[in-house]
């Protein structure tokens, strides 16, 4: 009865605040779309200079997929490289390859030039050229884009980020406006306040999770090997941890600005430890942070479903961890409320 009243009130407030509702529901879609466009953009076509290439070599080279400029002298090529008109140049001495010079300031361009070079000179080195290796993929495929791998993490991250911020600020407002004290001067129990918030906001996080997941998978065409239902379940569980963590941490902020300050401390580090960057490459003294962040478990579970196509048996451990986080945050929040009313 009392919890129901609280839930109804939260829903009413939410529906009045159209802009916050839009931020929670539409903003993640907007950002996912932008990231999708950024990561799945066209392949970079390197601009390459060839200096003094003998005609027989030129004929054997595969110069597609690059913008080729021919130079008479090394000096001219060097000048164009310095002006960034070309990304690098190849110098020959007679029929033999002498060296490759790269402009070098952008690693991804360097990579593109080297990749092109290997393709282009395949036929110059006949011994290797003949060998065709057959590559099999256990998961994914050779046309899997970067977005497909990052996607599940991003999906989880943005669900987490917006729910954390909005629920945290709402609960903070309850405190700063004095309404929390008013609630505590009524027979409402402390646990009822926490449960009421979970249910009231839970409704909107459910809506958000459904929207984000279906948009990413069906509109943006993110790689999806497993069951949509599980993706929804994981996103929802993650949102719950965000909701409970947000309301808990709001107890340690005195105003909205201080709530925003939790973003670089609490939210951003999670992003790094969520498997976006391979944890094995992170220094040992830092990598232990991964397993204490909720996003780590959600990202792993989302990848198991979306990329690897596994089922419940692969994710239930991670799901339990997420449920554990939520429960822990809720209990801590009830304890934090003791500051306002001892009973």
């Amino acid at each position: 009865m009392r919890i129901r009243a609280l839930v109804i009130r939260i829903i009413r407030q939410f529906l009045r605040d159209k802009r916050t509702l839009a931020m929670m529901l539409v903003a993640p879609l907007l950002i996912l779309t932008m990231l999708h466009l950024v990561f799945n953009g066209e392949n970079y076509i390197p601009k390459i200079g060839l200096v003094d290439v003998p005609d027989p070599v030129m004929e054997k080279m595969d110069i597609d997929d690059a913008k080729i400029t021919e130079y008479e002298s090394v000096k001219a090529a060097e000048e164009d490289t310095l002006n960034q008109a070309i990304d690098g140049y190849v110098v020959f001495e007679g029929p033999m390859l002498d060296k490759i010079v790269l402009e070098g300031s952008d690693p991804s361009v360097n990579g593109a030039v080297m990749k092109w070079f290997q393709q282009a000179t395949k036929k110059l080195l006949p011994s290797q050229g003949q060998l065709e290796i057959n590559v099999d993929y256990i998961h994914g495929s050779d046309d899997m884009g970067q977005f497909d791998y990052f996607g599940p993490v991003l999906l989880g991250f943005f669900a987490f980020f917006f729910v954390f911020l909005i629920s945290g600020i709402s609960f903070l407002r309850e405190r700063t406006s004095g309404t929390l004290e008013k609630l505590l001067s009524s027979p409402l129990r402390k646990w009822e306040i926490v449960i009421g918030y979970v249910l009231g906001f839970g409704l909107f996080t459910m809506l958000q999770a459904t929207l984000i997941a279906s948009y990413a998978i069906y509109v943006l065409g993110m790689l999806m090997e497993g069951s949509f239902f599980y993706v929804l379940l994981i996103t929802l569980m993650l949102s719950m941890t965000a909701l409970t963590l947000g309301t808990l941490l709001s107890a340690f902020a005195n105003n909205e600005f201080q709530m925003i300050q939790f973003i670089p401390i609490i939210i951003v580090p999670q992003f790094f430890f969520s498997g976006l960057i391979n944890l094995d490459t992170i220094s040992d003294w830092l990598s232990w942070l991964g397993p204490v962040t909720p996003l780590y478990y959600a990202a792993e579970a989302l990848r198991d479903i979306m990329v690897r196509g596994y089922g419940w048996e692969a994710i239930y451990g991670n799901m339990l961890m997420l449920a554990g986080f939520s429960a822990l945050f809720m209990v801590l929040n009830i304890l934090a409320l003791r500051k306002h009313r001892a009973v």
Binding site: R9, R12, Q13, R16, D17, S177, G178, T179, E181, K182, S185
Partner: peptide
């Protein structure tokens, strides 16, 4: 009744 009004202004 507290010193602050403690009302939900959006309602």
């Amino acid at each position: 009744m507290a010193q602050s009004d403690a009302l939900y202004t959006e309602l």
